[in-house]
């Protein structure tokens, strides 16, 4: 049933947000501490548990996935109701923070790549797999992945 997916999602979200609020009270801040993240962990755990028991029905999946596929439109609606007029007065903060974080992250990708040594490129992997396919004439097993 579709409603079981929507209900599961609701329960996970409510539990997560409640725990986030609780954590805020315990830690003495007026904030929801990581509630959405906690709710996501609940949902991942629930999915694993249901899958292991073979209870992951089509309807249940539909109920959750519908809302998952709805998140970009919801983010668009969220963007459309912000106080952008006041934000524009903040100046070029958006451009500097955006460009800066991308530049730093590009550099980190290069750095991690260099530090962890050379690896086969995707061209080399495909060339090797193509060779392996050609060589054993009797071996009909395809090792190629799309």
């Amino acid at each position: 049933m579709t409603i079981s997916g929507v209900a599961l999602l609701s329960i996970c979200t409510l539990l997560g947000v409640w725990l986030g609020d609780l954590l805020g009270v315990v830690l003495g801040v007026k904030a929801n501490v990581g509630g959405v993240g906690i709710a996501m962990i609940f949902l991942i755990a629930a999915r694993l548990w249901l899958a292991r028991r073979g209870l992951l029905s089509h309807g249940l999946k539909t109920g959750v996935e519908f809302w998952g596929s709805f998140y970009i439109p919801i983010v668009v609606a969220m963007a459309a109701q912000q106080n952008v007029v006041a934000a524009v007065k903040g100046g070029p903060i958006v451009i500097i923070a955006g460009v800066g974080s991308v530049a730093v992250c590009f550099a980190m990708v290069a750095l991690i790549g260099r530090l962890s040594g050379p690896v086969e490129t995707i061209d080399e992997i495909e060339a090797r797999e193509a060779e392996e396919l050609v060589r054993p004439v009797l071996g009909l097993k395809s090792g190629r992945i799309g």
């Binding site: 979200t13 959405v36 709710a39 949902l43 998952g68």
Partner: peptide, 12 residues
């Protein structure tokens, strides 16, 4: 918003 964002974790 929270509801939809939590739902995306289902694909993980």
């Amino acid at each position: 918003r929270d509801f939809a964002i939590v739902a995306t974790a289902f694909e993980v």
